[in-house]
Design a protein around this nucleic acid. Structure first.
Lengths: 174, 174
DNA sequence: CTATGCTCGACAACAACGTTGTCGTTGACC
DNA sequence: GGTCAACGACAACGTTGTTGTCGAGCATAG
């Protein structure tokens, strides 16, 4: 953090407090840094293993596409963006060779996006690398503490929701 | 998570393992969700307290501007983006009334961006809201476990670095 | 004192990702 | 068969980044 301390007055009262709690802003910052460190590690290793062009977003999208394929509109609903945005992402993944588009024989409107062999490969490798990174966290913290850490995290976060509108969410107005 | 399970083969060997470890991909996902939940809470409350237009990025940028002001080029170096990008963000914050630009009397090239009263107010309120959110985490987990949680997080993340190129990092190619 | 070189801020052009709105086609349902 | 909803395609636009170029100002070497 090169970001300077926030302008708050220090509590000049009780001075014998044992190891004061950290300021509240540290928690989200560290959560994000943990996320970013892991994702950066993943993609560095993924690049070494033959997938240099996959971006963080692509991994999440391919997970959302799943083994049975999805349409753009459905994908959009799943990851919380418009169907147009989902369609553009699918087009990118198609151009990169991670996805193929096929007509749904039962519904002439629908166009199913399915993972290619290369797409599945990137997902399988990602899963393996994620497990390796987690093992490194277990080395750093101890297996028990990591499990407790994950339990706490699970307790404080929703588990039925994930939105992928990160760029717009972080920066621009909704 | 509406995202379906990853396509890996389950380890069909040792079947009597007590409470298997979660897959590695859950950890980064939960870290990010924790970040997002906290930031969303912050900005919902910030909007209620008179700052509806502040975006997540703005808070980080204003923290980086700090009490003494900064130039665009310096800000860019600090948060890890180009000076042009930093300049645009400063211009936005200026239009929103959170920052004022002033000439540096010692160097005619430099233009110092300083926080306005309103800018400082948003930061002070943010700090208070962050503390309230942290208190809620302490209620949910217990004060001791939260402290342990933060210690673990601190142990696994760098503490001298924060890049703000989130939109590009997540989505686009570097 | 002057010449070189670096830094700053401004401007333009461009890429990536998101949004809303429109439109023709297709499917479902009354 | 007629009406309505959903899908995909297209266009237009806003925001956040990037690179490249440029003139102006400061510092330092000669």
């Amino acid at each position: 953090m090169t970001i300077p301390p926030r302008p708050t007055e220090p509590p000049s009262g009780a001075s014998a407090a044992p190891a004061a709690d950290p300021p509240g802003f540290e928690l989200p910052l560290r959560l994000f840094m943990g996320f970013r460190v892991i994702i950066d590690e993943l993609h560095a290793e993924l690049a070494r293993q033959g997938h240099p062009d996959v971006r963080p977003m692509h991994g999440f999208v391919m997970q959302a596409i799943g083994p049975y394929g999805t349409t753009a509109a459905d994908l959009g609903r799943r990851i919380g963006v418009s169907k147009q945005a989902a369609g553009k992402t699918i087009a990118n993944l198609e151009a990169m060779g991670y996805v193929v588009l096929a007509q749904d024989p039962n519904d002439a409107r629908r166009k199913l996006a399915r993972l290619t062999e290369r797409g599945v490969d990137s997902l399988v490798r990602s899963a393996r690398i994620f497990d390796e990174i987690r093992a490194r966290w277990a080395d750093g913290l101890g297996a028990d503490r990591l499990r407790a850490f994950e339990a706490d995290l699970r307790h404080m976060t929703p588990d039925d929701f994930f939105r992928l509108d990160v760029p717009g969410w972080f920066g621009a107005a909704g």
